[in-house]
Design a protein around this nucleic acid. Structure first.
Lengths: 396, 396
DNA sequence: CGCCTTTGTCCTGTGAGTGGAAAAAGTGGA
DNA sequence: TCCACTTTTTCCACTCACAGGACAAAGGCG
């Protein structure tokens, strides 16, 4: 039993833990500069944290011109597990308490196989990470699932692409299996938290994080906090109508954004184009691999294939149109584009930017960066670790 | 000089003031039930508030089975001024500290005449209210303007329908003229605050308040607080594209919601229909009044005129389509429809509801009321009073 | 009229937190 | 090597907010 079960005893301790998480090892004096507490009080709270074992001494800091100060840091043996369940693959990573990734695994998977089968796989991956010496036990785990979640209970509700998960007590079940606290959230929200913690959104209070993968979703951050909506389905922009009377969508409507542009739609359109002989490049890839994915389209586009570029541009336009509406409504300080299709890169980004800058009013777009996510596939697991650390580093 | 210039000295006093504002006269004991403070502490803070004059004794309360308690209430002589500047008219009202409207004036006006002319009119109306004995002086004023506002400074920024107001220091100027603290906000946000304080949104934390007047805007409330966006232009949904390649809009784009449905668009469409002889009802009204407004369309619809009903339904569909997108994105707990066109009533509401319930996913719409505002033209001024009271009832 | 309940006041104890003094541990120049 | 000056850390006395109990005041009810 090396596991830490302690929690901060008050708001001061919680703030200190978060400072150490986000700023790394720090001297008492430096902590004092960042927090509004007297030196005496600060010393008392740090001592209490040292007693709990959450924080440990870390040698002497370099001198700032006088007596050298004693550094403290979060216990380097603390381990968080970050799990990002996608529609077709799963990422599992181990981090330390400073949320640095120590190990990262990725495997193909199908959510539709249901929670039991998926968690079996996740637990096996976690065990593998443990076996490689990265962790003895986990002190907490964050889980991202590709659908709406009733956040306080950690239970998916009415997830369209993962029937069989509806109402499954993910948080409770995994907490049991892993023997540690667990928090569950939508994968898009975790991506937003990841980019906020370690990516492009570090300094922005209000931003949107659009994830284009098998489906399309959007993380909403208001005042530095993820906004989840009344029933946990906020940010579900895949089924906003992008094309009046457009393609039929799995949800029963027509013209949904997701039906026109997403990993799945792109693969379908590319296959169609290849079969119709519109693109030699895509056709040859189809023949080689037996099927096409967004990755093939990205490669074809990189090779200069006109059809692939057109598909990307067309999709970017659709997406940009929807985002333009969201920008008018929400007036964010930043828009982050991420997810599986970021491989499409700047062609996609340019198309989105064009639409947004053209359709939204200058006041909203004047100083609005629209950028690709910085963390790629690590955003989700980092966000997951961040989620559980936020929870554990709050007063009990 | 009867004016109160005191402010609460700490967070407890601020909470007490807000309890008294929202709950009316109250005994010390009842206040104790609603706030987490010991009786002794509560007594001290109430005494301090009595000293400042913000709160006064108000006789004895009815017995609850034992000794009768001494009531306290907000000083009944406190007066707030609520000003709601629309595109074509202005509302000015006086309230007491409990935000009950004591007097309300409404006059036609044209914002395009610029801030100086408009404020002359507003000040005259305020003077009239004073002269009728409703107030000696004002203790604070809230101002709503139909465009984006840099909130902390109270300065309109790049307002499309009110050129000439850009950068005008509304807050400072009016504070000078009125001799009291002033807060400025977008008119839609004030409507949302009004409905939150005294209308349909009293118990909802996250909701949208769509105002359809000369233009279209949307107030966004997140966790009970108005969300204004990075540059203060959040909720500016009038220029979201509702119809691809639709009607040209003043903003330079095509197909904006506002170009297809709003007070102005409705008047234009009705006039067109009347001139083309599509509706005898509208034609006769056009002849009588020389011009048509949304009110005429409402009357014609009430009389069963098919063309008028079609116009409303068509507009409701467009609006509903946009709102459906916002509902998917924001997942609110309530949608309030208000503004000048609420006269169109249930025909409009039904059209909007149909679109939203059809286009958004069940999880978001399952328990989503879409209702008309309860307060009508009083929402704006009530919200304005609420804005300034929130400011004054916060620790200085 | 006596007993019970509720309300309001007084008073003391406690714990959080501040700020100054002094000790501890360095740096760097003469 | 010594001394003056910094920075860090600990220690201690003092303040202040607040809780909670005792008690008085005021009213209901049988």
């Amino acid at each position: 039993m090396r596991r830490m079960t302690a929690r901060p005893g008050n708001a001061h301790q919680a703030r200190l833990l978060k400072l150490l998480r986000d700023g790394g090892p720090n001297s008492r004096a430096q902590l004092g500069d960042q927090i509004d507490l007297s030196r005496s009080k600060l010393a008392v709270e740090v001592d209490r944290l040292l007693e709990t074992g959450l924080v440990v001494a870390d040698g002497l800091a370099a001198s700032r011109g006088g007596r050298r100060s004693h550094n403290v840091r979060l216990n380097p043996e603390l381990r968080f597990l970050g799990v990002d369940i996608g529609a077709t693959s799963v990422d599992v990573a181990v981090t330390n308490a400073e949320l640095e990734t120590l190990g990262h695994l990725n495997q193909p998977m199908d959510v539709r196989e249901g929670p039991v089968a998926v968690f079996e796989q996740v637990l096996a991956m976690a065990a593998k990470l443990k076996a490689s010496g990265l962790a003895e036990e986990f002190d907490g785990a964050g889980i991202g699932v590709p659908g709406p979640v009733r956040f306080p209970e950690g239970i998916p509700v009415a997830p369209p692409i993962m029937p069989g998960w509806d109402g499954f007590p993910v948080r409770e079940a995994l907490s049991q299996e892993l023997g540690c606290p667990v928090m569950v959230d939508n994968d898009v929200n975790l991506m937003a938290m990841g980019e906020q913690h370690a990516g492009v959104a570090r300094t922005v209070a209000d931003f949107l994080c659009v994830k284009i993968g098998t489906g399309i979703g959007c993380g909403i951050v208001v005042g530095g906090e993820v906004y989840r909506g009344t029933t946990g389905s906020a940010g579900d922009i895949g089924h906003i109508q992008a094309v009046p009377d457009g393609r039929p969508c799995a949800c029963g409507n027509r013209g949904c954004l997701e039906a026109h542009f997403s990993g799945a739609a792109l693969a379908r359109d590319a296959t169609e184009a290849a079969q119709q002989g519109l693109s030699a490049e895509l056709a040859s890839r189809l023949e080689t691999n037996g099927a096409l994915t967004a990755v093939d389209v990205a490669a074809a586009a990189a090779a200069g294939d006109a059809t692939a570029l057109d598909l990307i541009r067309e999709g970017g336009n659709r997406t940009g149109q929807v985002i333009a509406g969201l920008v008018s409504f929400f007036n964010p300080g930043l828009v982050v584009i991420g997810g599986g299709v970021t491989g499409l890169g700047h062609t996609l980004l340019a198309a989105i930017r064009t639409q947004v800058y053209r359709q939204s009013l200058p006041l909203a777009t004047g100083n609005l960066p629209i950028v690709l996510g910085e963390l790629g596939p690590a955003a989700g697991v980092t966000g997951a670790a961040r989620l559980i650390s936020d929870h554990l580093f709050s007063p009990a």
